[in-house]
Computed example of a mutant assay.
Amino acid sequence: MRKQSAFSLITITAAACLVLLTGSEPARAQDSVDAPEDGTEIPFALPQAGPFTPAEISIDNNKAISDWFRSAHADAAAEAFRHWDEDEEIRPACATCHSGEGFRDFHGLDGTQAGMVDGPIEPGGVVDCGTCHHSGLAEIETVTFPSGLNHPVTGVEASCMTCHQGRTAGTDVMAAIADKPLDTTDPSLRFINPHYATAAATWLGGYGGAGYQYEGQDYSGRFFHARPVSTCNSCHEPHTLEVAFEPCLTCHQADSPEAIRIARQSYDGSGNTSVGIRSDIAANAARLMDLIEAYTAEVAGVPVVYDGGRYPYFFTDANGDGRADMTDGKPVAYDAWTPRSLRTAYNWKLVTADPGNFAHNPPYALELLYDSIEDLNTAMGGEALDILR
C-alpha cells in the first residue's frame, strides 16, 4: 500500500514538473484543433447538461400548449387537414380555415392582399397559435358572411367567426330555385352544402341569414346570452375547446349543457319539458328528414338516402332499400331535386351541421325546422302540425 502511494506521488510530481517546464496546459475536449490530414473525425466529449432535467425547466404557456396539442385544432392527422394530400395543395377556398398559414394569408396578416388566399398553401398545417394569437387580429374590424353581412368583430373573435360561418347562405338557395316550379324535378339542381361546424352561422340567426328563410316569416336574430357568457371564449376553453359547464349552473339546474331547457313549452309535440331543448331540436330534425324521404319518394318519384360520411351526402335510392345506388363502385349523387325538397334539405343540413345548435341559437334552429316541416307537410296534404314554431 505504501509502495503504491509513493509511486502515485512520484508520478504526480513528475507530471507537474513537465507542465511547468513546457508551459503547456492539459488538452481539453472542446479545444479547436486541426483535423488530421487523413480526414479522421476527432471525437468530442459533451459536457453534462447542468443541474436541471428537461422536465424541470419552466416553459411559458406550457399548459395552454399541451391543451391545444390534444385538441381537434391541432390534430394534423385529421381529415380536416389531410384531405388535400394527394393534390399537394389546399384549394384557396378551403385554405382559409384548414391551415393557419391560409388563415393569415386570407386576412392579409402575412403582408399579402386581404380578402383572398394567394397561396399556394400546402396541406399539413393546422389551426396553429398564430391563427388566434397573431397581433394583426386587432386590426380586423369585420368578418364577411356568405349572406354578404359584414359582422363587427374584436380580436380573436375574428378567427371564430371566419371559420365557423359555413360556406353558403339562404340566398344561395333562393338564387338556385328562383322562378322554378316548386314540385318539379330539375336535373340542373344540386345539393347546396352549408358545410359543417357552423356555430357562428347559427349564433347570428336570421341576422346572419345562413338558413333558407321563408317569405313572410320572422326569424330570431343573434342569440344574446346573459353576460358574461356572451362570446365564443366565454363558453369554450380556447385551447381544449371544451365547454365550461360550471358557469351555467349559476342560472340553470341541469346535469350537462345538453340537459338545459330554455322554454316551458314543448316544441316537438311530445309534451315532455323535463329534457333539454336539444331533445326538441333533434326530434324535429328527425321528423323533417322523414318528410324529405317521403316527399322525394311520393312527389319527386325518386327516393333519396342520406349518408353523412360521403359527399354530397344525399344519394339516389331508386329501389327504396335504404342504401345508395352504386355505379362503377361509387354512390350515385341525388339528382332529382325539386326546389321544395332542396330548400328543406338545406335547412335540415344547416341545423344538424352544428352539434351545439341547442346552445348557440335554439330559437333559430326550431324556426327553420318548423317552416321546412310545414312546407313539405302542406305539399303532401298532411294533417295540421302538432308542433310549435
Rank of each mutant, 00 (worst) to 15 (best):
P54G: 11
L249T: 14
E86I: 11
A199T: 10
R104C: 02
P355R: 11
A197I: 05
Y212L: 03
D128P: 10
A244T: 09
G136A: 03
Q265W: 09
P181V: 00
A282S: 11
V351M: 06
S256M: 08
G276L: 14
A285V: 03
S99M: 03
G209E: 04
R70L: 11
P92Q: 02
A294D: 13
M326C: 12
N62G: 10
A158P: 03
P54E: 08
D218C: 01
S230Y: 08
R340M: 08
E298C: 01
G309E: 09
D172K: 07
D307Q: 13
T184S: 03
H252W: 13
Q30I: 05
E242N: 11
E242Y: 11
N319K: 03
N193V: 01
E141Q: 15
G271C: 07
A336F: 10
W348M: 01
D183A: 04
R82Y: 06
L189H: 06
R104D: 00
E139R: 13
V229G: 09
T13I: 14
A286Q: 12
P247S: 11
T198C: 02
V299A: 00
N377T: 12
Y370M: 12
G125A: 02
H252Q: 10
L189S: 01
A197N: 07
S66V: 13
A300I: 04
P228H: 04
P362D: 12
A14D: 02
G329F: 09
T142P: 01
A365C: 03
I10H: 09
A244S: 12
D172C: 03
T198D: 01
S32Y: 08
D328A: 15
I121A: 00
A178Q: 15
N347P: 02
C94R: 14
E56L: 04
P312N: 05
R278C: 01
T338G: 01
N361T: 10
R340E: 02
G148C: 03
Q4V: 15
E383Y: 08
P257Q: 03
D371S: 11
W348G: 00
I387P: 12
D34R: 14
P238K: 00
L241Y: 07
A300V: 07
A76K: 08
V143F: 01
S274W: 07
E141N: 13
E79K: 11
N61K: 07
G115P: 00
H83N: 06
D290P: 00
W68H: 13
P247F: 05
D87H: 06
N62L: 15
T202V: 05
W84N: 00
G50C: 00
M380A: 04
P312V: 06
V305S: 10
S230N: 15
P92V: 02
L288Q: 02
G276M: 09
H195T: 12
